[in-house]
Amino acid sequence: MAPLQFLPFAEARRHAAETVVVDSILPRAALTLAHWRAAPTPAALQDDTSAGSVLRALAAAPAELAAAQYVTANHFDVDGFVGVWALLHPALARQHEPLLRLVAVLGDFREIDWQDPLADHAMKLVCWLNAEEKARFYEPFGAPARRRREDEASAEKFDWFLPRFAAILANPEAGRAAWQPEYERVRAAVAVMQSPATALRRYSDIGLTVVRTPEPLPYYALFGPTAGTDMVLSLYDGQRYEFEYKYTTWVDLESRPTRPRLPLDALVAALNAQETSGHAWAADGITDTGPLLRLTGRRLNKVQRYADPDQRPIYASSISPEELEQAVVGFFRQRYARIEPRRYWTWEAVRAAAAVVSE
């Protein structure tokens, strides 16, 4: 495999036949390594994360990779960055493969097993990437607010991070000043999640985890124990609630079957019929990367929806936590009873499943 060169996405469009595209789709690309639905990733290279597909490609060395000259991505996030970096540093990537896989899963799905000996290292790397991204550039999904296209503006992030990541990978202490604030906030939240103050209930038959904990927490703490399920209902003190479809149902998971997202209109209507707080329930559309069901006040933009729950307002409901949990569980049990979990849902199949259960 000859050394690859990073190309911004706009330039890569003119060199598609010689380009590997990561965590994105580029028509006529030499090779696609992405977990997006309908992405033409070769079956043998499919993985839960795009970086995981890259690591599979480095091990398999397909002819398309050997013939490529460039690598690109149309946005900057942890998973996509790790994949691009790995293709530019294949020997180091294979040396650190278990750690890089953890980083990619944490970045995209916000899941981590704290029993893994590499978990702490992975968290420091992700916190470093997050902190430097926000301090030097703009927050995830923040390009449109700056009247810039993400596929163009993100190239500046790649240019800054690509030559610096190896040093932090080898020695996270070199980046402590950047990662420490978020890392300490997450570790404090993990302690709450692991304390008697927090209770977890898993409804494996519908892929739901219910988390009852005093206050909203960062996703890296909140979602860790929910691995293996695709929906989270968070119940906070003061009758404050949020329900979320995880990103695991926006992409193609290779490791396990999933259920399709269902529109929440009927659940929203049922909750609004009970709600007397003065706020109204609303839900994002199923094609959003992480749709929320919550009481509305000031409308959240994409940056706020992607941000941690403890960084946005969550309003008090008149509905008790027991009633809300029963409503959510009942809604999905009724509708998923007619749907078998499977791998590789298309959006057309998702919509078809929704139409069947709404009949």
Results as ranks from 00 to 15, higher is better:
23 D>P: 08
249 T>D: 02
179 W>F: 10
279 H>N: 13
300 L>R: 10
271 L>A: 01
244 E>V: 15
323 E>C: 12
205 D>C: 10
350 V>H: 04
245 Y>C: 01
186 V>W: 02
232 V>T: 10
57 A>T: 01
292 L>P: 04
82 V>A: 08
81 F>M: 02
359 E>S: 14
77 D>I: 07
96 H>F: 15
15 H>R: 15
331 F>H: 11
39 A>H: 14
102 L>F: 07
26 L>E: 02
212 R>D: 10
56 R>G: 07
290 G>V: 11
77 D>N: 15
227 A>V: 09
249 T>C: 02
353 A>K: 00
314 I>P: 05
96 H>W: 15
160 W>N: 04
142 G>M: 04
323 E>T: 14
281 W>M: 07
318 S>C: 11
28 R>V: 13
148 R>L: 14
119 A>H: 06
45 L>P: 03
353 A>I: 02
308 D>P: 06
60 A>N: 10
81 F>C: 03
282 A>H: 15
250 W>Q: 12
74 N>W: 09
212 R>F: 10
107 G>F: 01
257 P>N: 06
240 R>D: 04
281 W>F: 14
1 M>Y: 15
109 F>E: 00
345 W>C: 03
235 L>K: 04
334 Q>L: 14
148 R>D: 09
305 R>N: 07
61 A>E: 15
223 F>Y: 14
224 G>V: 02
175 G>F: 00
62 P>M: 07
234 S>T: 13
220 Y>H: 12
57 A>W: 06
66 A>S: 15
287 T>G: 10
172 P>C: 01
39 A>V: 11
68 A>R: 00
210 V>R: 04
283 A>D: 00
23 D>I: 08
154 S>T: 10
356 V>E: 13
141 F>E: 06
35 H>W: 12
174 A>C: 11
103 V>N: 00
194 Q>C: 10
129 L>N: 01
138 Y>P: 01
118 L>S: 00
312 R>G: 03
170 A>Y: 08
29 A>Q: 00
219 Y>R: 13
286 I>A: 12
195 S>A: 10
95 Q>T: 08
1 M>T: 14
245 Y>M: 04
128 W>Q: 05
347 W>C: 07
43 A>L: 15
142 G>A: 06
55 L>K: 08
336 Y>W: 12
174 A>Q: 15
51 A>Y: 07
260 P>T: 04
102 L>S: 02
304 Q>D: 12
240 R>Y: 11
